[in-house]
Design a protein around this nucleic acid. Structure first.
Lengths: 346, 346
DNA sequence: CTGTTAGCGCGTTCAA
DNA sequence: TTGAACGCGCTAACAG
């Protein structure tokens, strides 16, 4: 057991020599597409490889073959359950295809996202998957599209998870329709006076959900007073802060507050609790996404279900399918309203 | 805009030609360590690279240099907030070092973990980080150590996050002490009759926490009746099921139930809620880990704080430091009892 | 400071 | 079926 502190890994060349065969034969035995190698040689090579603890060098394979087996995934924040659930789906799907997943975090910055895409291109991933809401009006947007186009032009597959609008294949969540359905259900539950907690105005996801919700209410002749729409970061703390703001204005005339994401809704619920406001007795709450913890908070959170892990899985499959070549394939996933204890029948 | 469907990416060679310089000069301008190239040439190269939308091929760089810039991270389940928080720390630390993170999921299977380590070696990552509790008694354990040793012998750095015991550098959480401190605090709160929800017997983390908790109680002459220790999977559903089991036996004589992880504790709380048991009025609950949602459930969960993101960050730093060469460096992170509303003073 | 050249580890054609 | 030789994109000596 006296290996030198830093020997180099055994190479295919070493294995070939150890097995007494040629480099080509070794290569064919270890990876070679079809069985075109004498079984005796084959065994010899396998044995030699095991003896030397050989592990193929993916980088070398990639240069030689001109293609890799990696999927690059960009998320806003991996600690956010929304993204980690999607990531789980991506990883699961990738692994069944023998693909390795590399991950990077944009921290919700479009500039950072651009940088990362640029950097990740160096990996020559087979697939690049971008999650997180698009925010328009950003100058980086055009540059991002250009960068992704350049990647796609050289054989890379790009898939976005969020909303359509960019010229790439996309797994789309119908935020508008989901929010509208939610509004309808809540009115059905007897709610009439609403407030809303949104994200930044430029965030398309936030906007779509707010619009859908408003339109759903409008069908019943209900409107949200502009003063009752507060905004915050698209995070738990953002929801907490927004709810606090809402409280400062007084919530006496509000039945239910709709937060555009579960994470924000849960932050809001904590703010209410700390202020001594009891949900749903004093005010009801609803969110969007149906993250795992939505059912574990008390009261359980009414929300719009999105099959998050499926989103990730479908993104991988879409990317690998030839449909992705068309560069504008769209998969639309269904949402579903989930009524829970945070918005009981009135 | 009529790029052929699948052109190949521009190579350094293309850039050099476009700029009218040699390959070496192009290489030096684009990456070359220090400024050893005439600024005019340099600009020409940069311009050419931009024009051709050049992106360096990491794989080729890796082959040429004999080293990569990737960190491989293995987690049990990325959708679990415990792991996703650690992953966030790993990614953050890696990115500041210009390293790319590749991630794989073991699904809590030791066999799968072994397979993945074997596969990931092909990446020749600079660092391999394994998180998740060790479970002893598994046959794969020895094979895993062998595989990791082989990796380390060829210059790879290995860091584990969990408990010591394996011959690699480790970021250790003092589960035993944390649980003992928790037990003491809870007795201080007035609790006397306890139940516990644990994971599989072979899971070291679960065992350590249970042991620490029991010893902490023992200091006060308190013991947990064996019938009041139930086990389940180390997941939310595992906690839910275990709590259900507990309920079936009757919890009339129990003040507080300690779950060995927050995720299980939260599952248990949901089970209680669905059974009409009110926490903490009917029974108090405590967990371990202090995941983000621990403060957002109602009542907020008493737990033992672990700086999860720091764990990941420190793992990367430990791996990169020369201390990791010694192969048995240990960083011990502090835990801290956090008393919340789920275990009020009696 | 620049260009030439020899590898890096591997896949794959092409003869044998 | 096997092996020799070339090339993948790039870095790092080495000479100029």
């Amino acid at each position: 057991m006296a290996a030198s502190p830093t020997a180099s890994p055994a190479t295919l060349h070493d294995v070939a020599r150890e097995a007494g065969v040629s480099l080509a034969t070794a290569s064919r035995s270890l990876n070679g597409s079809t069985r075109k190698v004498n079984d005796e040689y084959r065994q010899r090579v396998l044995a030699a490889a095991a003896r030397l603890n050989y592990s193929p060098n993916f980088s070398a394979q990639a240069v030689a073959k001109g293609s890799t087996s990696t999927v690059a995934l960009l998320v806003s924040d991996i600690a956010d359950p929304y993204f980690s659930s999607i990531a789980a789906g991506v990883i699961r799907a990738a692994e069944t295809q023998g693909l390795i997943v590399t991950m990077a975090v944009t921290e919700r910055s479009t500039e950072r996202e651009l940088e990362l895409v640029r950097a990740l291109r160096g990996q020559r991933p087979r697939v690049m998957i971008l999650t997180g809401s698009r925010s328009d009006g950003s100058e980086s947007q055009a540059a991002l599209v250009a960068e992704l186009k350049a990647f796609a032009a050289t054989g890379g597959r790009v898939v976005l998870i969020s909303q359509e609008g960019l010229p790439f294949s996309t797994v789309v969540v119908d935020n508008y329709l989901g929010a509208r359905a939610l509004a309808n259900s809540l009115v059905g539950q007897g709610y009439r006076r609403f407030a809303a907690i949104g994200g930044a105005r430029t965030l398309v996801t936030s906007r779509d959900r707010l619009a859908g919700f408003a339109d759903g209410l409008a069908e019943h002749g209900i409107a949200i007073h502009p003063d009752h729409i507060v905004r915050g970061e698209f995070t738990r703390d953002g929801g907490f802060a927004a709810a606090t703001e809402l409280l400062a204005d007084g919530i006496g005339q509000i039945d239910l507050v709709f937060a555009v994401s579960d994470v924000m809704a849960i932050g809001a619920m904590s703010a209410f609790r700390e202020a001594g406001i009891v949900v749903p007795r004093d005010i009801a709450v609803a969110g969007f996404d149906d993250i795992d913890t939505a059912r574990d908070v008390t009261p359980a959170l009414t929300t719009v279900h999105i099959p998050l892990a499926d989103l990730g899985q479908q993104a991988v499959e879409l990317a690998l399918s030839d449909a992705a070549l068309s560069s504008d394939e769209v998969i639309r996933v269904e949402t579903r309203v989930v009524l829970r204890a945070s918005s009981p029948q009135l």
